[in-house]
Design a protein around this nucleic acid. Structure first.
Lengths: 337, 337
DNA sequence: CTGTTAGCGCATTCAA
DNA sequence: TTGAATGCGCTAACAG
């Protein structure tokens, strides 16, 4: 099975033309006689000719490829973001290369090497929960390759970012719980390494404060997003002298797990304990009871990030740094609270 | 923001060596003095040097990239398959490029062009529901670029395929329903263009036959997998003179939609109507009632397909054609039936 | 309108 | 062990 590549030379020979003419015909250059172009195009089609992007990219120093690095693909969040990003990218003529870091710093670094080696024109990044050093990403800056962060952003770097208003989202969720009469609201928070954890926690605190509910340290548990452990935290919360009557979770997978645990313990959601999640995952509308959650405009996040990146690739502005797009969240009230 | 690429020449100059020596040092060629190698490696690191895979691939005629074309990313099925495939691929040193056809033939063709232009070493394909012409894929065969189909395969082409035993899966599901006392079992089937529709339908028929239940044409509805329309089919089935007491669905998203519709009509699942799905989507364990379904080893499908593809890329066997890996399904009994 | 020339960054002959 | 030369497939000047 030898791989024989059809090249411009083959077409040129067959048509007794020069390579450059064939090249021009193929790229739609106007300075080619219509007959010649037709002949070239026809033969190319018949010979299964496909432009070799490797060669073209090598010359033009542009691959028309953008890289996307996401932490995982297990919830519907990141797949949907990539769908949005691909939508915009492919419309603009860009191919997308997706890598998962699996929430591992090492893998994320490896991913960036791949992106660099493959000469992507720019990258979209959402950090792994382990990432605290950003040297591997700063290389892109030094090389002048545009980066756009989304969701899990890096505050250390002056590049465009697409986020949602995590503070406000959390604030709305917790305020809603309070207005529904909940008094002791626990918060299963994310790892301190992620800014989103902090922002959502702050929103939680602000909502309590506004409603004059004292902040109780023992009701807030930061965890590493490994849902296998959720049952421990929930058990702990429930065994408190004054157990919570509501739990606000950092994410939907977390909230879903919480509901399962509560149900297994014979308690009722929301009667005994209300639960609110974050992100409006696909699954959240399906579970029983269905999950009240803070919806994020996932596809829009992807679209916005991709558009920002492509703008940056095409134009050559110097003031990209300051751009931070903050998209709005929306509280979706369902059964769980 | 000019992009300045660090090249071998830069390193060579700085170290006063020849390009070839630097190149050899970088690629771990044994015929390089240890000192020289160290010096090169160190400087390369310091200069953020990254090999330009475009140039390398152009010479070696190998990109170490495999393409994956999937119909969609909306259920958890294809994301999980790609996770399995990426796992194997990256272990073998391959990068993965994923494209979605969005169930569109046109897009699928466009995707293959991208793969070809980017000189992928091989592709993994699951067909769109619209695809009936396979010329765009036969080009790969002609060019000697390995293809492996999975899930939605093409019977016209003699290439390796990874599938599950759809017939047996459907057979098990329907047999189970019958053994549970169901008499009138409807089947919401997939489009005739997909072989999996046919196989699952045959499994359904075989199970009926084995249990001496006459096949009733009016209980089988083929549909195009657009779940927006499911409520119409369910409504139709329920309004039949003799409505079904169970529905076997071609897929989990279908089954989930069916359950929602049934619940909305005030009927109970499984008391009034039992529902069984296919694939064991992430969501199926979470809905209420939880879905009884035929589980597919999704990640294994991805792993197997990727491994088959890589084997084919590396070795040069002629008898790949015959390989069809049939993985086993498993009936997961939950609440819905 | 078309042909000629010169590389893009690198691996790989062949010499030394 | 190292260096010089060749070319992967193609585009982009530069000429005619």
């Amino acid at each position: 099975m030898k791989r024989h590549q059809v090249t411009i030379v083959d077409i040129a020979k067959a048509l007794n033309l020069s390579k450059s003419t064939v090249s021009r015909a193929l790229t739609g250059h106007p300075s080619v006689k219509e007959d010649t172009r037709q002949a070239v195009l026809e033969l190319a089609e018949k010979m299964d000719y496909q432009r070799n992007m490797l060669a073209i990219s090598l010359i033009t120093r542009k691959t028309n490829t953008i890289g996307i690095i996401v932490p995982e693909f297990t919830s519907s969040y990141f797949p949907n973001v990539t769908i949005g990003a691909q939508e915009v990218a492919s419309k603009a003529g860009y191919t997308t290369v997706i890598c998962q870091s699996n929430e591992s710093y090492e893998t994320e670094v490896a991913n960036t090497k791949v992106m660099l080696a493959n000469q992507v024109d720019g990258i979209l990044v959402s950090l792994s929960k382990e990432t605290r050093n950003f040297d591997h990403l700063k290389i892109f800056q030094r090389k002048g390759i545009p980066i756009v962060f989304f969701n899990r952003v890096c505050d250390d770097m002056d590049v465009p970012k697409v986020i949602v208003d995590d503070f406000e989202g959390a604030f709305k969720a917790v305020s809603y719980l309070i207005e529904k009469g909940r008094k002791r609201i626990a918060h299963l928070s994310g790892p301190a390494s992620l800014r989103i954890s902090e922002k959502r926690l702050n929103g939680y605190k602000a909502a309590l404060k506004k409603h004059n509910i004292p902040y109780d340290d023992s009701l807030v548990i930061p965890y590493d997003l490994n849902t296998d452990m959720v049952h421990i935290y929930v058990t702990h919360l429930l065994s408190l002298p004054q157990p919570p009557d509501a739990i606000f979770a950092i994410s939907d997978p977390t909230a879903i797990e919480i509901i399962q645990v509560i149900k297994k313990k014979g308690l009722r959601v929301p009667e005994d304990i209300a639960v609110v999640g974050f992100s409006n995952d696909f699954a959240s509308g399906l579970i029983h009871p269905s999950l009240t959650t803070v919806a994020q405009p996932v596809k829009d996040i992807g679209r916005t990030a991709a558009q920002l990146l492509i703008d940056q690739i095409n134009r050559d502005l110097a003031d990209w740094k300051s751009i931070i797009r903050v998209l709005k969240t929306e509280l979706i009230v369902r059964e769980s609270a």
